[in-house]
Design a protein around this nucleic acid. Structure first.
Length: 905
RNA sequence: AGGCCCGUAGCUCAGUUGGUUAGAGCGCUACCUUGACACGGUAGAGGUCUGGGGUUCGAGUCCCCACGGGCCUACCA
């Protein structure tokens, strides 16, 4: 049964096949009634119309690694996929799409527009789930959810109504953030602050009935058209006499009062502030306190309106320019100074947000926040990395009410109806027939929709069945873990905790791991619009999905952002290729073995792997025992790392094991034995090799699902499961661990390395074989070398071994002292004495330094009394070894005529 | 204004409760095309951990200050 296997790993050839297999076979379908501990995770729903970006790739890789790892360890595992309708951003995309075809969405009308978005969603949407399937995420696709499905809509209404009935949702006229491009109100979080260099215009307001002026400073002169007062600090003597008088508002020729209010900072600007209640949050508060009129001077799209007199119709910054010019012309502009301040930008449209008075729906947060703070304080939700806890607490303790209505068409319509006669509000789960207050049947539903985050805030419990107590809800809620980016800690994570606790009395997840962001080489956030984003689909094509996943995992140290580079990707691809070729080695040689008459059945029984490592004549060969000891250490390390979201450690650990231990040492060591004429020896070697390789594949599987699935299916020893994903993650057997074996193996490796090292330095070819000499070696180590003589001679290119070297000829022998004894290479020609001397001197130098510092430390009484026993013992042990080593090096130096050690260093 | 993070080899980054000669990948140097793999093998060079001060028997690891870089929160006109 000769196997055809390509020389280089070609991921494109195998990935689509397995991706399809996993979906078609419904391999990852969860069963709420299945036994075992539960691992459940819900996806942070990506935008339905979006496509996979590199950040998703990282997030999904981490989720999938942990999901597969748990599944393989026997957990009842659910990874629930889904998408978000992403109100504002989807609406923007479709509006632009229509505009590109010359269609004005507003003329289209609401109903038709919504149809267009659904159509868009059906066509463009689903791309991301297609991609997720393509990269092999182990989701339960039968449970896929969408935040705007009819099912979700019912649940959202349920939540809204309950909160309204509890008085936690209310409607109010207040100053809000308005985006003049998106034409909707925004929550505080959707406004990003940016430091910008601006100006402070000092404007002279004439005091009515006098020749005096009151100078006010403003950063937004255009808002002056809506001024209804000027405020000074009540303590400010400069202005106290003016309080109660009026000023004449320039350009508008309206008289407005001079008032006193604590809010005014005497030190800032001129100490006098123009008050525009309709356009500034502080002024709004002052306006309330002093019962001032609110004059809105702008339209929805930030043009000046009829209240702006002569400036009506101008765009806000046009108006600003004109106003400044006019003031200057009238001699009312005292000066302009430079001023930097943080201005609010709409997260989506990047336009400057306009503070405005408007009637909106709000959610009261204080009460919801309290239990959410407690849950994290008590550790009912573990936050990793934990420095994010403080950020969470800070925000939660200073939380303000959440503006939940949006003037959009795409989203969950607010379940509130107003009667036309009296404008009474009726909030209901189902469309009401009449007004609950006056009985009017002339009702109209609130045109607005809910903030996207309102529905995604319910995600963990509504996707699992809430408000019904379904089997899924009982089994999988609370979810085990949430993995998401720290950039949506407040937007999403905090709100899920608050709403989850409020509606289910349980935390929505027991832990939240906040992953890193992938940044550009310059350290900036990747952005598609700036063209700095990397396309993961293209990279997957180029390097393979497994390489991409492994690369991201190996860089994903908690708390640090990732800068992805071609070098790292290439290195991961090389690793995939290494695995592929190790398999190729196995299969090619297995063919030969079979041709020589071996019976595969001996190797192929699935239970064979459970008993590895096998021994020959009752004795397990050292190298096999060693490999399984390394395997045990690797498994323990990976389990520990993954339990703490230390993906990079797990990845690097398995990399080191596979490449360093398994390929570089183990395979090279056992090569001859695999074709040994001794049938028993060969069979044992094969069994151990396959058992180890099979275990390695399973260790690698969470990171590299495609490659491992492909190779696993070719293994004679694969389990009876349908897929490696349903096979078990290797467990550690206590008899695998063996320090003595590891020590012995290290000694043999040192002999080999010594030879190679010396050859490289002396420019000697590997083909030239020299005798190996061992001096001062105790019996057990002599036996050790003897038992492994073939491998040591072959890998170290020695011709023979002399087990008891008594005298070393300094002219032809090169020595390496070790704690176990001296290693000697006898070369037939003269040793290059000066090179040898230089080399010895070079190793003497750091050795003397470290010996000196250790002696100093050990001589210190305080150290001896305070340091733990373990440290002192360890220090003493290494010190004595190093002293012996140093002594030998010095003696050797003298024999070579290299002079005294003083001269050396 | 408040808070957080980072500054370790030429480059990109690890280094969990302070503890024996600080690690990896890439790059670099030398040798090797050996029947798994040149997306490879073997060996090697290269950091004293941004700077200063402190705590400690002992600090890359803890504290303070400075410099440099990044981020978040915030209604100062």
């Amino acid at each position: 049964m000769a196997r055809e296997i390509a020389k280089a790993y070609e991921p494109q050839q195998i990935e689509p096949r397995w991706a399809e297999f996993w979906v078609k076979e419904e391999l990852f379908k969860a069963d709420a009634n299945a036994p075992g501990p539960v691992f459940s995770i819900v996806i942070p729903p990506p935008n339905v119309t979006g496509s996979l970006h590199i950040g998703h790739m990282l997030e999904h890789t981490e989720i999938d690694i942990l999901t597969r790892w748990h599944r393989m360890r026997g957990y009842n595992t659910l990874y629930l996929p889904g998408t978000d309708h992403a109100g504002i951003s989807t609406q923007r995309v479709v509006v632009k799409f229509l505009a590109d075809q010359g269609i004005d969405y507003q003329k289209l009308g609401r109903e038709e527009f919504e149809k267009q978005v659904w159509k868009w969603k059906e066509e463009a949407g689903g791309e991301i789930t297609k991609q997720m399937k393509g990269i092999g995420e182990s989701c339960d696709w039968s449970r896929e959810k969408f935040t705007l499905s009819p099912e979700m809509s019912r649940k959202v209404r349920e939540v809204f109504v309950r909160l309204y009935e509890e008085g936690l949702i209310y409607r109010e006229n207040r100053l809000v953030n308005w985006c003049p491009v998106c034409l909707t109100v925004l929550s505080d979080l959707e406004v990003v602050h940016e430091e910008r260099q601006g100006h402070l215009w000092h404007i002279k307001y004439p005091v009515a009935g006098t020749n005096e002026f009151l100078v006010v400073a403003t950063t937004r002169p255009e808002t002056m058209l809506g001024d209804t007062a000027v405020a000074v600090n009540p303590e400010d003597e400069r202005y106290s006499r003016l309080v109660g008088n009026n000023v004449v508002l320039p350009l508008m020729n309206r008289e407005i009062p001079i008032i006193a209010d604590e809010m005014v900072d005497r030190e800032f600007g001129t100490g006098a502030v123009k008050i525009t209640p309709a356009h500034d949050p502080n002024d709004f508060e002052v306006g309330k306190r002093h019962k001032l009129a609110e004059i809105d001077v702008m339209t929805d799209d930030a043009h000046m309106n009829a209240n702006a007199g002569a400036y009506a119709g101008l765009a806000r910054f046009e108006a600003r320019k004109k106003i400044v010019e006019d003031l200057k012309a009238q001699g009312l502009l005292e000066k302009i100074t430079e001023h930097t301040n943080a201005i609010g930008i709409c997260e989506r449209s990047k336009t400057i947000v306009e503070p405005r008075v408007s009637t909106q729906w709000f959610c009261r947060m204080k009460l919801l926040a309290e239990p959410a703070i407690v849950a994290v304080e008590r550790g009912e939700i573990r936050v990793v990395p934990d420095n994010r806890r403080e950020e969470y607490f800070n925000w939660m303790r200073n939380i303000r009410d959440w503006t939940i209505s949006r003037q959009l068409w795409w989203g969950h319509r607010i379940p509130a109806w107003y009667c036309k006669e009296n404008n009474h509000v009726t909030v209901a789960r189902e469309t009401p027939a009449k007004c609950t207050t006056c009985g009017s049947t002339n009702l109209e539903q609130d045109p607005d929709v809910l903030d996207t985050w309102f529905s995604s805030g319910l995600w963990p419990f509504v996707t699992l069945g809430w408000p019904e107590n379904t089997p899924d809800f009982r089994t999988y809620y609370p979810t085990t873990l949430l993995i998401t980016g720290y950039d949506i800690l407040f937007f999403w994570v905090a709100r899920m905790i608050m709403l989850g606790l409020h509606f289910t009395d349980k935390v929505p997840f027991r832990a939240v791991y906040l992953h890193s962001l992938v940044r550009t080489a310059g350290g900036e956030k990747m952005s598609k619009s700036k063209g700095t984003g990397l396309d993961p689909v293209a990279l997957n094509q180029q390097y393979g999905t497994d390489a991409m996943r492994f690369c991201l995992a190996s860089m994903a140290a908690p708390g640090t952002d990732i800068i992805l580079s071609d070098d790292r990707l290439a290195s991961s691809r090389n690793f995939a290729n290494k695995i592929w070729n190790a398999a190729r080695f196995l299969f090619v040689n297995l063919d030969k073995f079979e041709e020589s008459g071996a019976r595969l059945e001996e190797l192929a029984a699935p239970e064979v792997r459970a008993k590895a490592p096998y021994g020959c004549g009752g004795k397990i060969p050292l190298v096999d025992a060693w490999l399984f000891a390394r395997l045990a250490a690797t498994i323990e390390m990976m389990n520990d790392a993954l339990a703490n979201y230390r993906f990079h450690e797990a990845a690097q650990g398995v990399y080191q094991f596979f490449w360093g231990d398994f390929c570089d040492w183990y395979i090279e060591w056992v090569k001859p034995e695999l074709q040994s004429a001794d049938r028993e020896r060969a069979t044992v070697a094969w069994k151990n090799l396959f058992a180890a390789f099979d275990a390695a594949l399973r260790l690698l599987h969470p990171f590299m699902p495609f490659l491992t699935e492909e190779l696993w299916h070719q293994l004679p020893q694969k389990a009876s499961a349908k897929s490696i994903a349903l096979d078990s993650f290797p467990g550690v057997r206590s008899d695998w661990k063996n320090d003595a074996v590891e020590r012995k193996m290290r000694f043999l490796q040192e002999i080999v390395t010594f030879s190679r090292n010396h050859r490289a330095q002396a420019g000697l070819s590997n083909k030239q074989r020299f005798p190996l000499g061992l001096g001062n070696l105790d019996q057990s180590y002599r036996e050790l070398v003897h038992e492994n003589e073939e491998a040591v001679l072959r890998l170290g290119s020695f011709s023979s071994v002399d087990y008891a070297v008594l005298r070393i000829d300094p002219k032809t022998g090169v020595v390496r002292p070790t704690p176990q004894g001296d290693l000697v290479i006898s070369v037939e020609r003269e040793v290059n004495t000066s090179a040898e001397i230089a080399k010895i001197r070079k190793s003497i130098e750091p050795l003397t330094k470290t010996i000196a510092s250790k002696e100093r430390q050990l001589a210190d009484e305080t150290f001896r009394s305070r340091a733990p026993e373990k440290i002192i013992k360890g220090l003493e042990a290494t010190l004595s070894q190093q002293k012996i080593e140093l002594e030998k090096l010095r003696r050797r130096l003298e024999e070579l005529g290299g002079g005294s050690q003083e001269a050396a260093g």
